[in-house]
Write a protein that binds this DNA or RNA. Structure first.
Length: 376
DNA sequence: AAGCAATCCAACCGCCTGATT
DNA sequence: GAATCAGGCGGTTGGATTGCT
């Protein structure tokens, strides 16, 4: 029955890796490839379990890892993808070249999540915590949560479908690829390898849906869009909901500087329920009043036609604005801006043009990163 | 300078899925 | 079909570091 056991955990070392161990692991993989992780420790002369070796290689020793501070662009990517994917770190890592899922996860938990919390945004739901500040309609926020939940369900289904495609693709491609040393393969997780493996047979399937979103977004009028399935209709709503997104600040070199926290200060200031000041971009303030959501309330019962509101739009808008504006906000918690960034400064309307810009950015992101990444 | 608290992050753990026997 | 393994993923932990009093 099954495979014969090849590894017991008796006497295996745990804890931090020593330079000697690192060297052994590196030398072995460079010469032989990792092959079977379970068999690797014995062959490499390491008193570690294969899992530990794999993690050490994947998260630290791999030569194509970029370490150090996250750039503003990377922060934005994480935030945007987290808004879409949730805690699917490996999927997020797919779109961040040279970053590991573990590093992204840590960075989220130690930096970005706290930053969101300070801003009054629930980092789990990406929902503003203080409803009164952001919406004049108490019902709209529950709608937001429902929409996000629906998005999450949709994305889960999408990822499952992608995984199936990966498996099929693997079966097709394994006959022509060597199973031995592949230093750049699959180290960022299943999704990474999936996208890579899909490349020979065309664009990654998972992106087709995103493209469909964008295409739909380009052609559809603002408002609900009919679609054959609930997921697609939700997806279209996501695209739509991103209308207020601005282009990546770093892309124009203007505010894409490493120390972008400084610009967090240049935001409209609000007070949360306990008196803490919160900065919001004017786009959020002005357009997050959920007129769309409110108008849709009469049709909420239809799962087949979920009118995704503009919450994600506001959220990502907020994050983009804030992440590119002031890192000092997160560093020292200071929010004393003296209103330097008034609500009229840098305000975003909800125009279709912005919508396109945002979604094209997302598409560029997911299209370019995996294929360009040396991880693959 | 010392003690304490907060923060960071490498590594571990448990669980899941697909493959293998 | 059941049992087991291998690999991967996300959550959590604990030691090291940094900051504050």
């Amino acid at each position: 029955m099954g495979r014969s056991p090849c590894c017991d955990k008796i006497g295996l070392k745990k804890g931090p890796w020593t330079p000697e161990e690192d060297n052994k692991l590196l030398a072995y993989i460079e010469e032989h490839g990792h092959g079977s992780w379970r068999a690797l420790p014995a062959k490499a002369g390491l008193q570690r379990c294969g899992k530990s070796c794999r993690l050490r290689w994947t998260n630290y020793l791999r030569p194509d890892i970029k370490r150090g501070k996250f750039s503003l662009q990377e922060e934005q990517t994480i935030i945007q993808l987290h808004a879409l994917l949730g805690n699917r770190w490996s999927a997020i890592a797919t779109h961040l070249p040279k970053r590991t899922d573990n590093e992204i996860k840590n960075y989220w938990n130690t930096h970005l999540k706290k930053r969101l919390a300070k801003m009054g945004i629930d980092p789990v739901t990406h929902k503003p915590k203080n409803d009164a500040l952001l919406s004049s309609d108490g019902h709209s926020n529950s709608k937001n949560a429902a929409n996000l939940s629906h998005m999450a369900q949709w994305e889960s289904a999408r990822l499952e479908a992608e995984a199936r495609l990966v498996r099929q693709s693997k079966l097709r491609s394994c006959t022509s690829t060597s199973p031995s040393f592949q230093p750049h393969s699959a180290e960022a997780g299943g999704s990474t390898s999936s996208l890579q493996l899909l490349k020979p047979v065309g664009a990654p399937r998972c992106l087709d849906v995103l493209k469909a979103w964008a295409k739909t977004n380009e052609t559809a009028a603002v408002g609900d869009m009919e679609s054959p399935t609930s997921t697609l209709s939700s997806a279209a709503g996501v695209a739509e909901s991103s209308a207020a997104f601005v282009e990546f600040p770093a892309s124009d070199g203007g505010i894409g500087k490493e120390d972008g926290d400084e610009e967090w200060k240049n935001l409209p200031e609000y007070r949360d329920g306990i008196g803490n000041s919160i900065h919001f971009p004017s786009g959020l303030q002005d357009t997050c009043l959920s007129s769309e959501w409110a108008s849709e309330s009469s049709t909420r019962n239809s799962v087949e036609h979920v009118p995704c509101g503009n919450f994600v739009e506001k959220f990502t808008d907020l994050l983009l604005s804030t992440s590119s504006t002031d890192r000092r906000f997160s560093d020292d918690g200071a929010d004393s801006d003296n209103g330097s960034g008034s609500a009229s400064d840098g305000g975003h309307d909800c125009s279709t043009e912005d919508n396109k810009n945002y979604w094209n950015s997302i598409l560029n992101l997911v299209n370019s990163s995996p294929s360009d990444s040396p991880i693959f």
